[in-house]
Write a protein that binds this DNA or RNA. Structure first.
Length: 494
DNA sequence: AAAAAAC
């Protein structure tokens, strides 16, 4: 099933209607166009409009594109076309040699790309299968032996299949390296080298990367031949559709702050990223205890647990997916209005990838991050990479502030007229009106978006003790507990 | 510092 937004919907904006290209204009086979119609896709996204003709020509491509731009269809549609055009070459010894290989860094991404490729090729007779670790290898061997033209794989399990001779890559004409920057980060370079050595010299190479580091350029220089560069958004830039919000919250209050934000904003589809696997599990447990439909996904979970969590999240049974960076890249989940960073990531590039999970395909999104006083360097790195200044804000009741809790409630009651908050208010059976964040988005609550002024002590003196000493102005614990308690009560009834 | 990926 398609859950992504790989292509523009039919109701695309009308601004460029006169010159707007349609999928019909690329000379794609009727079988492919039919599959696109099945999905309701008519207009290509910018990266598809650029990539499809170039890939059809057989050229190598270096694509700088974030996920959600329609990258997967951008390469898979022309690949399918090319495989159809040169179908069943009689010179091939194997009846169904693997003719296109798509490599991804994570298992979930491989699975998702495979779903897309299968959907696009369903009327063509071409067959695709996915292979990745953590699951029984036998069904994969059976699928490969039955003959498939397109294989989507993570590198380790693919080499496993090579070792046990369940796959033959000697006829593979097209190689795609998706999320190439991630694969480098994860140390896949030796595996990539090994895999590439198994492929014919003469082949088409497509490399996609969300960021464009010197290492990526080096990889492109060594693996690609005379590539056409395709760049959609400025690389390393964050989407204009994403509003970035940063709250200063003490480490031991972050769990409550997350619960508070989830409830206050009425969030239903949100990923919360943590820096550690244990952190993801703990936060998930904490949220479940508070009545939040949460589940954790990280590399220490079994593959079946990972798949279940992701499926439950996609169908809405899980509303809050607490994830490590296993979910930071590539995952395309529709209608994600918000992404939350429990911690700022160690690596600034990971920040770009994490918040890229929202604001997809033209939709608006919020990226909310929690940070501590010690995150100055991480924040500076992020601002440098994204080229944007992110203001530290205070989260009502959670940061050193002179604001009494009652003032905060007064301010929120200004949004009494908001229909959505009225509805929520009724559902909660709550006595006092509480501002919703949805429709009143433009009139932002001043206590939620008030710039936080960190203490002015020199950074060297700002160790944990001095930070704690500066927190004397924080609201009394009882007051905050009352505030949270009120919210908790409402969630039980609601 | 962490995470991811083959067994």
């Amino acid at each position: 099933m398609m859950t992504d937004q790989q292509s523009s919907p039919v109701s695309a904006p009308a601004d460029s209607a006169a010159a707007r290209q349609r999928f019909d204009d690329f000379g794609l086979a009727p079988e492919i166009l039919r599959a696109l119609r099945d999905q309701g896709y008519e207009y290509p996204t910018p990266i598809q409009a650029q990539a499809i003709p170039v890939v059809l020509q057989g050229r190598d491509v270096m694509g700088a594109a974030q996920t959600g731009t329609g990258k997967t269809a951008g390469f898979s549609l022309p690949i399918i076309q090319r495989l159809m055009a040169h179908a069943n070459n009689s010179a091939s010894p194997a009846r169904h040699p693997v003719r296109a290989l798509i490599l991804t860094p994570t298992r979930e991404l491989a699975d998702q790309v495979a779903e897309n490729v299968k959907a696009y090729s369903r009327h063509t007779g071409l067959r695709a299968t996915v292979v990745f670790g953590g699951v029984d290898i036998a069904p994969q061997v059976t699928a490969l032996r039955s003959g498939v033209e397109i294989v989507i794989a993570t590198p380790g399990r693919l080499l496993d299949h090579v070792a046990q001779k369940s796959i033959n890559l000697s006829q593979t004409q097209i190689l795609v390296m998706d999320e190439a920057d991630r694969m480098l980060d994860m140390g896949f370079l030796p595996d990539l080298q090994r895999i590439i050595n198994l492929l014919p010299r003469q082949r088409q190479n497509l490399m996609f990367s969300a960021t464009f580091s010197p290492e990526i350029k080096k990889l492109a220089a060594s693996f690609l031949s005379n590539p056409q560069t395709i760049e959609v958004a400025r690389s390393n830039a964050t989407s204009d559709n994403v509003t970035q919000i940063l709250y200063e919250v003490k480490e031991d209050e972050k769990r409550d702050a997350i619960a508070f934000i989830l409830r206050e904003r009425g969030l239903k589809q949100v990923i919360v990223f943590t820096n550690t696997k244990i952190g993801a599990s703990r936060l998930s447990v904490h949220l479940v205890k508070q009545g939040v439909k949460a589940a954790a996904i990280h590399g220490d979970k079994s593959q079946s647990e990972r798949m279940t969590a992701l499926e439950d999240f996609k169908r809405g049974a899980v509303e809050v997916l607490v994830a490590t960076d296993v979910a930071a890249r590539g995952l395309d989940i529709s209608e994600m209005p918000c992404v939350i960073n429990y911690d700022l990531p160690f690596n600034a590039e990971d920040y770009v990838h994490r918040i890229g999970r929202t604001g997809r395909a033209g939709a608006k999104g919020d990226a909310i991050s929690l940070c501590g006083a010690q995150d100055d360097k991480a924040l500076a790195d992020i601002e440098k990479l994204t080229g944007r200044k992110i203001v530290r804000l205070q989260l009502a009741g959670f940061v050193p502030t002179s604001a009494p809790a009652f003032r905060e409630r007064e301010h929120r009651s200004e949004y009494r007229g908001d229909q959505r908050s009225e509805n929520r208010h009724e559902q909660r059976g709550e006595g006092r009106s509480r501002g919703g964040y949805g429709a009143a988005r433009e009139k932002v609550d001043p206590w939620f978006l008030r710039p936080y002024t960190p203490n002015t002590a020199p950074a060297s003196a700002r160790n944990e003790k001095s930070a704690a000493a500066n927190n004397t102005a924080a609201p009394k614990p009882q007051k905050r507990a009352a505030l949270l308690g009120g919210l908790r009560k409402t969630s039980v009834t609601g």
